[in-house]
Simulated assay, not measured.
Amino acid sequence: MIVITLTKVPRSLRGDLTKWCQEIQTGVYVGNVSARIRDQLWDRIMRDVGNGQATMVFNAQNEFGYQIRTTRIDYEVVDFDGIPLVKRLNRVEGPVKHGFSNAAKWRKAKKFTQKRVLSDNTISFISLDVETTGLDVSKDQIISIGAVKKSADGVKEKFYEFIKSDKKIPENITKLTGITNSILENEGVELSEALLKLKEFVEDTPIVGYNLSFDDKFISMAFRNLNESDLSNKLIDLMPVVKKKNKFLDDYRLGTVLEKYEIENLKPHESLSDADATMKLAEKLIKNGDLEI
């Protein structure tokens, strides 16, 4: 048996879950599926959760008889001698600066993405994308970071780093991204070095992304694991902007959206190529009056 709780997720995800589970209360789903279907459901949740939150509890052979997965970044599931425990994380160190928490960042992102006013084209902003070994922020790792910065005068700079990993990259990830263990070993840098370079690159410039909560969760977790301060940039997710403007797309994967806006992405699932395509998407949304940075 599995129990899934959802908060502030897209309706499409709720609809997908009702194919396998029964909604016994708003946002609470119960089902009895195989381990394979359970893992596929979690992959779908991680892909489509957007700015919302999700937690899954399922049967497992441990002392408690169950295991926990969650997308929440204020909690961490830890294994204590085979017992799953939920640890509440205190991410605030020193004086609280208003507007720099993740909740505040997403409120600001929602506020700005819902405005349908043509933005000043002289605004500088950055598009960001990461590739990872999987979808679980508590277990998987960042293996590449790509970003494109557009300056106020229209000049673009690019940032691209492979990240060394102490784990073998799953075959499906290599097939999807083209990234191999050999590439990471020969061309990769340590995560701490990549994050430092990323901070220097983004400075205080606004950041856009597609399904940006996914990238932000992995980057935030990486900074936390290194005991470093997180990025405090303004974050703007393009996915809700696109969904509001285009209500009848077959799906809202980046590839589908780029095709809708006639944007070519030569290397899908390469972080730099995805970041470049996302930059072009943001520029089109600005031009159409659907986005303000």
Score class of each variant (00 low, 15 high):
Met1Ala: 12
Ile4Lys: 03
Thr5Met: 08
Lys8Ala: 14
Val9Thr: 15
Leu17Arg: 01
Cys21Met: 10
Glu23Cys: 07
Gln25Phe: 13
Thr26Glu: 11
Val30Tyr: 05
Asn32Glu: 15
Asn32Gln: 10
Arg38Ala: 12
Gln40Ala: 13
Arg44Gln: 13
Asn51Val: 08
Gly52Met: 09
Thr55Lys: 05
Met56Asn: 01
Asn62Asp: 02
Asn62Pro: 00
Ile73Lys: 02
Phe80Glu: 05
Pro84Thr: 13
Arg91Asp: 04
Arg91Leu: 15
Ala104Gly: 06
Lys105Ala: 14
Lys108His: 08
Lys111Tyr: 14
Thr113Pro: 00
Gln114Asn: 14
Leu118Gly: 07
Asp120Cys: 07
Asn121Val: 10
Asn121Tyr: 10
Ile126Gly: 03
Asp129Arg: 03
Asp129Val: 08
Val130Ile: 15
Thr132Glu: 07
Leu135Ala: 13
Lys139His: 09
Ile142Thr: 06
Lys150Gln: 11
Glu157Gly: 01
Glu161Asn: 09
Ser165Asn: 09
Lys168Ala: 13
Glu171Thr: 10
Glu185Ala: 14
Glu185His: 07
Ser192Gly: 09
Glu193Ala: 14
Ala194Glu: 06
Glu200Trp: 02
Thr205Asp: 03
Pro206Trp: 07
Tyr210Met: 04
Asp215Leu: 05
Asp216His: 09
Lys217Leu: 08
Ile219Trp: 02
Ser220Pro: 00
Ala222Tyr: 04
Phe223Tyr: 15
Leu226Asp: 01
Glu228Ile: 07
Lys234Pro: 00
Lys234Asn: 07
Ile236Leu: 15
Leu238Thr: 00
Asn246Gly: 00
Lys260Pro: 01
Tyr261Cys: 03
Glu262Asn: 13
Ile263Pro: 01
Asp274Pro: 00
Asp274Trp: 11
Thr278Trp: 10
Thr278Lys: 05
Met279Arg: 02
Met279Thr: 02
Ala282Ser: 07
Lys284His: 08
Lys287Cys: 04
Gly289Glu: 04
Asp290Ile: 01
